[in-house]
């Protein structure tokens, strides 16, 4: 099972405990060390906040359900310098550019990235090596 970031973007984020709408999905933050999503970034009236992936209960076709309103936290400082994943430059660990990120396909249950779609093709999630202020680095080949 795989879902695309482009399908999730804009979905309402609703709490399971209070049935309160916290905002809409704006983007996500990747943890290349685990190859998975670390946070969902939410947009809410111009403010940016986030929910850690373990607090996400379900990613459905019409909404994202998170545990409670308490899970909402301001975007951490280390996120501020992070580039938007979509549009990020893709660089192999050998220093060759491979286009830019178009979309991210991930498992909505585990949050593991399965495929990174780039302007030049696709890269398997296991090949992720690092995401920094300059590029998404992937293993070659």
């Amino acid at each position: 099972m795989m879902i695309l970031l482009s399908q999730v973007k804009g979905l309402r984020v609703v709490t399971a405990e209070e049935a309160v709408e916290l905002g809409t999905v704006d983007s996500l933050t990747l943890d290349p060390a685990t190859g998975g999503i670390s946070r969902l970034r939410l947009a809410h009236g111009g403010r940016v906040s986030g929910v850690a992936w373990p607090d996400v209960r379900a990613v459905g076709p019409d909404a994202v359900i998170v545990s409670s309103a308490d899970t909402l936290s301001p975007a951490p400082a280390q996120d501020s310098g992070r580039p938007e994943v979509v549009g990020a430059r893709v660089l192999t660990e050998l220093g060759d550019e491979q286009g830019t990120v178009k979309d991210i396909g991930f498992d909505p249950v585990t949050g593991l990235v399965q495929t990174v779609y780039t302007t030049l093709g696709s890269v398997a999630g296991e090949q992720l090596r690092g995401l920094g202020d300059y590029a998404l680095v992937v293993r070659a080949g």
């Binding site: 660089l91 090596r129 690092g130 202020d133 300059y134 998404l136």
Partner: peptide, 11 residues
């Protein structure tokens, strides 16, 4: 030419 860490940061 940019000098980039494997973590994707430009140094």
């Amino acid at each position: 030419r940019p000098v980039v860490t494997l973590g994707g940061d430009l140094v």
